Measured scan of single mutants.
Amino acid sequence: NDEAKKEAEKLWKNNKSEDEIKERLERAGISPDEAEQWLQELR
């Protein structure tokens, strides 16, 4: 999970869309709710 979150953070810094980041997190096995929460922390 931490690995996926690091990846999400990297994508965020590269200005990827939130949808793309969420999709990537969900593919890594993170629930949509958790993915949404993680994005809010990044904002």
Rank of each mutant, 00 (worst) to 15 (best):
N1Y: 14
N1S: 12
N1E: 10
D2S: 11
D2Q: 12
D2A: 12
D2F: 13
E3P: 05
E3S: 10
A4I: 12
A4G: 05
A4C: 15
K5A: 02
K5V: 03
K5M: 05
K5R: 12
K5D: 02
K5F: 14
K6H: 05
K6F: 06
K6T: 07
K6I: 08
K6G: 04
E7T: 08
E7I: 12
E7H: 05
E7P: 02
E7K: 04
A8V: 06
A8G: 04
A8Q: 01
A8Y: 03
A8E: 01
A8K: 01
A8S: 03
E9K: 12
E9W: 15
K10A: 09
K10Y: 12
K10V: 11
K10W: 14
L11N: 03
L11P: 01
W12D: 00
W12L: 04
W12A: 01
W12I: 01
W12Y: 11
K13P: 00
K13F: 10
K13R: 12
K13Q: 10
N14H: 07
N14W: 11
N14P: 03
N15T: 03
N15D: 06
N15Y: 08
N15I: 03
K16M: 14
K16T: 12
K16L: 12
K16W: 13
K16C: 15
S17T: 09
S17L: 05
S17Y: 04
S17E: 04
S17W: 04
S17F: 04
S17C: 13
S17G: 05
E18R: 06
E18T: 06
E18V: 12
E18G: 04
D19R: 12
D19N: 08
D19L: 11
D19G: 07
D19Y: 09
E20I: 07
E20D: 05
E20T: 04
E20V: 06
E20H: 03
I21T: 02
I21S: 00
I21E: 02
I21W: 06
K22T: 02
K22S: 01
K22E: 03
K22N: 02
K22A: 01
E23W: 09
E23N: 07
E23H: 07
R24W: 15
R24Y: 15
R24I: 15
R24G: 08
R24T: 12
L25T: 01
L25S: 00
L25D: 01
L25C: 03
L25W: 03
L25Y: 00
E26I: 15
E26L: 15
E26H: 13
E26S: 12
E26K: 13
E26W: 14
R27Q: 13
R27I: 10
R27W: 11
R27F: 10
R27K: 11
R27S: 11
A28N: 05
A28V: 06
A28G: 06
G29M: 02
G29L: 02
G29Q: 02
G29S: 02
G29H: 01
G29V: 00
G29E: 03
I30W: 10
I30S: 02
I30V: 11
I30Q: 01
I30H: 03
I30T: 03
I30R: 01
I30K: 02
S31C: 15
S31A: 08
S31E: 05
S31I: 02
S31K: 08
S31H: 09
P32T: 08
P32M: 07
P32V: 08
P32E: 07
P32W: 10
P32S: 10
P32C: 09
P32D: 06
P32Y: 06
D33V: 11
D33Y: 11
D33S: 10
D33C: 13
E34L: 15
E34R: 09
E34D: 06
E34W: 04
E34G: 02
A35S: 04
A35M: 09
A35V: 14
A35T: 06
E36L: 10
E36Q: 08
E36P: 01
E36M: 09
E36T: 06
Q37T: 08
Q37H: 06
Q37C: 12
Q37Y: 05
Q37R: 13
W38K: 01
W38N: 00
L39D: 00
L39I: 11
L39H: 00
L39T: 02
Q40V: 09
Q40G: 05
Q40Y: 10
Q40R: 13
Q40F: 11
Q40H: 11
Q40A: 13
E41Q: 13
E41L: 13
E41A: 13
E41D: 08
L42Y: 05
L42D: 00
L42V: 02
R43T: 03
R43N: 03
R43W: 08
R43M: 09
R43Q: 05
R43C: 08
